[in-house]
Design a protein around this nucleic acid. Structure first.
Lengths: 142, 142
DNA sequence: TATTGTTATACTCTATAACTATA
DNA sequence: TATAGTTATAGAGTATAACAATA
């Protein structure tokens, strides 16, 4: 992996992405806080709310790219608040499946709606510009 | 602040931005880790390395949007490693100014160079596309 | 033996409140 | 009194290692 200097244009784009990241982060934490959730708790709850079926603890850790032992505590706190529950896996008694409760699903919905980042900064862009941005981001991540 | 559903295009852009944010974060932490720094330490060191003059502790906190008491510990750790030093402010004896050492500046430089996010994901984009992305991000950030 | 989830431990980050030394 | 930085404290996230139950 060669380490060379990027051109000024690339550097500026990287800096702008850094700004977007910083802003997104602040807004995400604020949105989570409005529901008495930390960022990590909001991430786990959101992920579980988008899954069609309950998810093993280990898989949550893989998706979040962290150690499985961390998920124990995060799910503990979500479970204490009645937003998530642990279910046994009939196929493997070692596994515990985490699933959002009805209240957890509602909280996840409200969380999504309160993410102002969805509207505010994109509000100034036309449909054509948003389409262009979408395509560029897709290619970037592709 | 009205809470309404965003259109599908906006939602997709927001999701893509979320992906970029997640990826940026992982890469930033990894780059920091390669230099035995945490993300917060890397942020402070980078900020100080870009400032023309030493910065009061309080101003660092404002820029990072956190409490001043946090900066004490972060600068403590950077200072222990010889990457940052605290200087007195001749104009106000209450103030302590933080400044990167020579080694701190070198570490900050290497950190920037090792931020793969600068090259890899943007490598697939042409100059015209990078320009378009820059303009869209600029408009997004207002 | 290997794997899943948990526990125990240690470190860092974070906010809050109280303290100190200046202003 | 007000402000800058620190300290003390508590909660949360993180990685590592060791453990019990199960495969």
């Amino acid at each position: 992996m060669p380490s060379r200097r990027a051109d000024p244009l690339t550097l500026e784009v990287v800096e702008l992405i850094g700004d977007v990241v910083a802003r997104y982060h602040v807004e995400y934490e604020q949105a989570a806080g409005r529901h008495q959730l930390t960022g990590a708790q909001a991430k786990v709850l959101t992920m579980l709310s988008l899954e069609p079926t309950p998810m093993p603890m280990r898989k949550i850790a893989q998706k979040l790219r962290c150690e499985p032992s961390n998920i124990t505590g995060i799910v503990d706190r979500l479970e204490t608040r009645g937003l998530v529950e642990r279910l046994p896996d009939p196929a493997d008694r070692r596994v515990k499946l985490a699933a959002p409760t009805e209240e957890g699903l509602q909280t996840a919905d409200r969380l999504r709606e309160s993410l102002d980042f969805a509207r505010e900064p994109l509000g100034g862009l036309s449909t054509a510009e948003r389409t262009a941005l979408r395509d560029l981001l897709r290619r970037m991540l592709g």
